[in-house]
Amino acid sequence: MKTLSQSIQRFWFSDAPAERLAALRIVVGLFSLGYLLPRLGMLMDISRQGHELFEPVGIVGWLENPLPPMAFLLLVLTTLLANLAFLLGWRFRLSGPLFGILLLTTLCYRNSWSMIFHNDNILVLHALILGLTPAADAWSLDSRRKAPGSLLLGPADGSGWQYGWPVRLMGAVALAPYLLSGIAKLAGPMGLAWVSGHVMRDQIAVDTLRKIVLGTSSSDAIYTFYHQSGLFLVLGLTTMIVELGAPVAFFHHKTRWAWAILAFLMHWGILFMMDITFRYQLFGAMFACFFPVEHPARYLKSWLLDRYLNRLRRPDRPIVQVNQVS
């Protein structure tokens, strides 16, 4: 019993460098900024819809009526400012939790208009975890303030369990929806027969049909593969392995990597077959927490420093020695 408890403790509270959590903060911060900014107009249009379409969910579930559009605009703009502070790691003790809560509120409100977009779930949970943990101890304005004269992306030699457990938690939170999806399929009307593939084929076909009838772009792949029952059997089995196998894969780094690659490919497969864009997954941002993401970030940092900062420091003109004139 003691050994099991020690193993669990070793697993959950293993050391990680501060830069790993910082790199994840930058990945999530960049992704959410790139996600929210281009949707500003669409978010405003949604908030101007009739109250009869308003079905509040999550932490805005207590609202009886929609917010005035100006109030929602203020909320989105504040979220964007907090997003920037989160990304730069500025006053993180305040901006970190604030961004997590604001992003949760904004996306709950966005999902309160008759349709829940499940592709935003993990992004929100990751932002909350990072916002409440020391994710700005490296590569941030805060860390630069603590070490005056250092660069924004300067070296950070700290490591410890306090940087390790949030990464583990991000991984677990990323895996959970896949497990829940697998359970929902088994608990559904088809049960284990779901793996036969025809339910999946019908789901893809229905999605394509809706897109055609409602006049939007769709993948034509289903026309090619509609009668390929063997292919859908393989896809059904693979989906179940990815979903139900998620918690098993979690406990070893090699299986975690294999799972992440398989799940990443699954989302690209969904894009190909259904033209559905799970952006957080497709960009690989969701899977970053499964890898030592500080290594590519360090490489990118040294490349950037080499290319831009050192060039600025290097004098363009040759130094001409001027003899002192007495």
């Binding site: 969910v57 999550g58 579930g61 949760l104 996306l107 709950c108 999902n111 829940i116 977009f117 499940h118 935003d120 779930n121 993990i122 929100v124 949970l125 929806p177 829940l180 999806s181 929902a184 399929k185 608990a187 559904g188 009307p189 088809m190 779901w194 339910v199 999946m200 019908d202 789901q203 076909a205 229905v206």
Partner: peptide
């Protein structure tokens, strides 16, 4: 269903 806590019912329905 809710947000961001969901039971992910999509794809489980038999069409």
């Amino acid at each position: 269903d809710s947000f961001p806590l969901s039971y992910y019912p999509m794809f489980s329905q038999n069409r």
